[in-house]
Nucleic acid binder design. Structure first.
Length: 435
RNA sequence: GCCGGGGUAGCUCAGCCUGGUAGAGCGUCGGGCUGUUAACCCGAAGGUCCCGGGUUCAAAUCCCGGCCCCGGCGCCA
């Protein structure tokens, strides 16, 4: 009887283990009971392997009592067998149920229909191959973000979640009951705090949740999403775009190195990802408007790009693209206006291909106090609400730029998902805060 | 906020237009099956047809009101 440590499914699926006795533990993924054999497809965090219990085994009766998702410990000999899914199986010598699961409420039909119940039963659905694969990719994405910034001399910083003023002018804030104080909200962006931090650390980034109380009913919106934001002292619009495309390139490359199997389970064609290589095409807003007009869109200079427009635009490209120089009215007040053309801003959006749309918004910030105050007023806002932010321009102000990446949207695009909800284990949207 | 779609068995759906005793597949349970691959075969149990009102001899079906859900747009990451 093998008394060694428990191994993982992935480890034993190799010729090296054929003929050797191993111990595994995990959950019953599928169960097929025939007259003389029980086939247990055993799932753990690394994969799935078939375990076979024959009628003459003293554990045969026990194997008949298992149910889907029951947790079990299995001992047996690894065999190579073309009849087994994956090519390897375990011929069971000992079986020990840890917990016999009740009838699992998620059925094949619900999974295939991608139905509502998968969200109600999210705490169970995250065990699925689909969600497991996405979450592994997501983990790589977050790892790669930290890797990238740290290798480029950025300091990781942490900013408050409770805030008192909006960053995005129009976007709605979630009010929070904060003792007896009024006007306390959940943050929409760490940007203002990052701007404060560049005066000591120069290059800073943070990865944190942001909250938007927009009543958006689309497959690209969450009310709570993960935001990777960076801010760089002395950086121009051009400098920051270079950081952004290198970041995206690094993330995509890491996923291609580590998650080919997961992408395959998700049915994601990797050509889309292999093509991603900087520099990304840079299109001016002016150029984009012309392009869209030529395509027959009813859009004029000064209009913001709608979802349909973005979708059509990105169809012409195989990599993410930048759209640069939006009119002042299309962007939040803190964007610096172009000194050469004051009607436009030194702003940019990065749009993901295949119709996925905006994943990054960024640009150069206003670094002059008077200019900032005037623009705040021009936007119908009250400078009193932004005192400390304006203050930053009074003590050694420097040109600086930054951006915010919607990490869930990036995961959605990398995995080729239909809905942003599946890019995060427990999504929060306009209706859903459970489970 | 505006526009569209939907709510029928545990799950996924058909039935609704054209009113007449509630259906299928999957799951569950029982049985069978020479190694299964989303196994297969036989059988059984399983229903507040979202809620309320109306029309009618008769309503899942037609009409009115309400509730809930989904998607698209706007807004944004």
């Amino acid at each position: 009887m093998y008394m060694g440590a428990f191994l993982h499914v992935r480890d034993v699926q190799s010729d090296e283990y054929v003929g050797r006795e191993v111990a595994l533990r995990g959950w019953v993924y599928r169960l097929r009971t025939l007259k003389d054999s029980t086939f247990i497809l055993l799932r753990d965090s690394t994969g799935i392997i078939q375990c076979v219990v024959k009628r003459d085994s003293p554990h045969f009766e026990l194997s008949r009592k298992l149910t889907i998702e029951s947790s079990v410990k299995v001992w047996g000999v690894v065999a190579k067998d073309p009849r087994a899914p994956g090519g390897y199986e375990v011929r069971v010598t000992k079986l020990e149920p840890v917990h016999i699961a009740e009838a699992f409420p998620i059925t094949e039909s619900a999974a295939r229909a991608d139905s509502e119940i998968l969200l109600d039963l999210r705490h169970l659905w995250i065990r699925s191959r689909k969600m497991t694969s996405i979450l592994k990719v997501r983990s790589t994405v977050f790892e790669a973000i930290h890797e990238f910034f740290r290798s480029r001399g950025f300091y990781e910083v942490h900013c408050p979640i409770f805030v008192t003023a909006a960053v995005e002018g129009g976007a709605t804030l979630f009010p929070v009951k904060y003792f007896d104080r009024e006007n306390v909200y959940l943050t929409q962006s760490a940007q203002f705090y990052l701007e404060a931090l560049i005066y000591s650390l120069e290059r800073v980034y943070t990865v944190a949740p942001s909250f938007r109380a927009e009543k958006s009913r689309t497959r690209r919106h969450l009310t709570e999403f993960w935001h990777a934001e960076a801010e760089v002292a002395w950086a121009t619009l051009d400098d920051i775009m270079r950081v952004e495309e290198e970041l995206i390139y690094h993330i995509v490359r890491r996923v291609l190195e580590k998650n080919l199997e997961e992408l395959s389970i998700l049915g994601r064609r990797i050509e889309h990802l292999e093509r991603v290589k900087p520099p990304f095409p840079r299109l001016s807003y002016d150029e984009v408007i012309e392009r869209l007009q030529r395509k027959g869109f009813n859009i004029k200079w000064g209009d913001d790009l709608g979802a349909d427009e973005e979708r059509e635009l990105t169809k012409d490209f195989e990599t993410p693209i930048f759209v640069i120089g939006y009119p002042e009215t299309c962007k939040a007040f803190y964007h610096k206006n172009d000194p050469e053309r004051p009607e436009i801003t030194l702003s940019e959006d990065m749009l993901a291909p295949e119709g996925y749309g905006e994943i990054i918004g960024g640009g150069q910030r206003i670094d002059d106090a008077r200019e900032l105050i005037e623009k705040i007023k021009r936007f119908g806002l009250n400078p009193d609400d932004y005192q400390w932010y304006i203050d930053l321009r009074r003590y050694g102000s420097v040109p600086h730029s930054g951006f915010g990446l919607g990490v869930d949207r990036l995961v959605m695009w990398i995995c080729g998902l239909d809905h942003i909800r599946d890019a995060i284990p427990f999504p929060r949207d306009i209706r859903r805060v459970y489970p």
